[in-house]
Computed example of a mutant assay.
Amino acid sequence: MTSYHLAYMPPVKPSAIALGTVFTHASNLAVLTPIFGETYRRAQRADTKEEFLKSREAASAAALYGSTLVGSGIQTYAVAAVLNHCGVLSYKGAAYVGGLIFAATALPQIISQAFQERRPAELLAVKAAVSAVDTIGLAVFLTWWGTNPAQDLLR
């Protein structure tokens, strides 16, 4: 009987994870800016800074920011690992793999929201655009930077 373990997880350059996390986090924050903007306005209206820091809005914004950052790092590693595992070296290949990741992760939810929940088309277009940047854009960006630790030896 063969045992399987985590040794099959491909190594990824730490700098690729760091830069990809910043890339993904920035695209997520572009969508979350209205939420943070409202939180900032509430902070300005609060009587004191301490009063705002104890508020539920501050805790919610901090949790959202932190979870988005952690999620961005995990997503970056996963996309980079898939690129490494597939041996993708071209932008065209990266766009293709990113498109497959987009189709597997974001498209089912967008279709469900369009037909079952009847969400507005504008909202779905924004979600699709952000998801495309998070998958296709991230894959192309990581290919540009390089994801395989062995690539550092070639530079």
Rank of each mutant, 00 (worst) to 15 (best):
M1H: 12
M1L: 10
H5L: 15
A7H: 09
V12D: 06
K13R: 15
S15M: 14
A16D: 14
I17N: 02
L19S: 11
L19E: 04
G20A: 08
F23S: 09
F23Q: 01
H25W: 04
N28W: 07
L29V: 11
A30E: 00
T33I: 12
F36I: 01
G37K: 13
G37W: 10
E38P: 00
Y40P: 02
Q44P: 04
R45L: 10
R45D: 12
A46Y: 12
F52Q: 03
F52T: 06
F52D: 03
L53N: 12
E57R: 05
A59F: 07
A59Q: 11
A61V: 14
A61L: 13
A62G: 04
A62L: 15
A62Y: 08
L64M: 15
G66P: 09
L69E: 03
G73T: 06
I74D: 08
Q75G: 04
T76P: 10
T76K: 02
V79N: 07
A80C: 08
V82K: 03
G87Y: 12
V88N: 00
S90W: 04
Y91V: 01
G93F: 11
A95G: 08
G98M: 05
I111G: 01
Q113W: 13
A114M: 09
F115R: 15
Q116C: 05
R118D: 09
R119M: 14
P120V: 13
A121Q: 10
E122T: 08
L124I: 10
A125Y: 02
A125R: 13
V126P: 06
S131T: 02
S131I: 00
V133F: 04
T135M: 01
V140W: 05
V140K: 07
V140Q: 12
W144P: 08
W144D: 12
G146I: 01
N148P: 08
N148D: 14
P149G: 05
P149N: 08
D152G: 10
R155K: 15
